[in-house]
Design a protein around this nucleic acid. Structure first.
Length: 287
DNA sequence: ACCCAGGGGCAAG
DNA sequence: CTTGCCCATGGG
């Protein structure tokens, strides 16, 4: 148990909300203490007061970067349409949410395993993969997310045994492409948003939705607006109430692009989190 | 452009 | 103890 803390003064930051907003799936909570792994190091964090973040000693910079505490949320909020009351409400509901900076591979692999899955199961798969194929973090029993090479070596059958189902094939193929050097995740950083999305979509098990989540959560492309079933439902109910039976995906995509501005990724996150946790939205289509 | 398979946990009945 | 439901993609 660590008892020594670095103390970081924070504004507009919600640790619990950020770690549980569908970006990462491996943080363990015990009371108000969160334990997880960032870049090979075990990190503990807690937020005893809204304006104070405690991070285990020596890891303040690591956590600050991971949690994107330097993002200027006031600026981003300012760039969004002021007349949009739905967005204002969603922002007000969770003004301390951050879009984190995750490692590229860890984020990509996790989202490949996330398709058509509930959060609890994504979490379980993620932890199993770490336990079985990840290296131990320094001075801990916790494990680092397995490398592409480790998952390529593991083989599809052993991945399937982690509850991955048909996703095992996708994850294994993608891990193999990256381990062999045939696909370079770092090279994606040089492409613009559309080209980067298209490039990621070349990987098995990666379509537009997952590519956009990875760009937003691991490449800091804050202008990318991933649309999943929840966001589709939210956009339809909030902005197309009059035409909800005829509006299509393309219209929703174009609306998001022109309506929310250059930091639309944050708008997506606020709307998503509000819809998922506030109880304002029904679970079922057409209810 | 539709249309459906696909694993398994979990909540609801 | 069943059944239906899931933060999508790929292949027909």
């Amino acid at each position: 148990m660590k008892t020594a803390w670095d103390i970081i003064p924070v504004q507009r930051f919600d640790l619990e909300g950020t770690l549980n907003s569908g970006q990462v799936f491996h943080w363990h909570r015990d009371g108000d203490l969160f334990t997880g792994v960032i870049g090979g190091e075990v990190v503990q964090m807690m937020q005893p007061q809204p304006d104070l973040l405690h991070v285990s000693k020596g890891q303040a910079e690591l956590a600050r970067h991971y949690l994107a505490l330097d993002h200027d949320l006031a600026l981003m909020k300012k760039s969004m349409p002021k007349s949009d009351l739905h967005l204002r409400r969603a922002f007000k509901y969770a003004p301390g949410l951050r879009i984190m900076r995750q490692p590229q591979w860890e984020c990509l692999a996790t989202f490949i395993t996330s398709s058509l899955k509930q959060v609890a199961h994504i979490r379980q798969i993620s932890l199993l993969l770490r336990e079985r194929f990840g290296q131990a973090a320094s001075k801990s029993t916790l494990r680092i997310y397995p490398t592409p090479q480790a998952l390529a070596d593991a083989g599809e059958v052993k991945l399937r045994a982690c509850g991955l189902g048909y996703r095992a094939k996708h994850l294994h193929q993608t891990a193999t492409l990256i381990a062999s050097g045939a696909f370079d995740l770092e090279a994606v950083t040089t492409l613009d948003d559309d080209a980067a999305c298209a490039k990621l979509c070349e990987l098995p098990g990666v379509g537009p939705k997952i590519a956009q989540c990875v760009l937003l959560f691991a490449y800091e492309r804050l202008g990318v607006f991933p649309i999943d079933v929840w966001i589709e439902r939210v956009l339809t109910e909030l902005y197309f109430a009059d035409s909800k039976d005829t509006v299509n995906s393309k219209q929703l995509r174009e609306f998001a692009l022109e309506h929310f501005g250059p930091y639309r990724g944050y708008a997506q996150q606020w709307l998503f989190h509000h819809a998922r946790t506030s109880g304002h939205f029904s679970k079922h289509k057409g209810d």
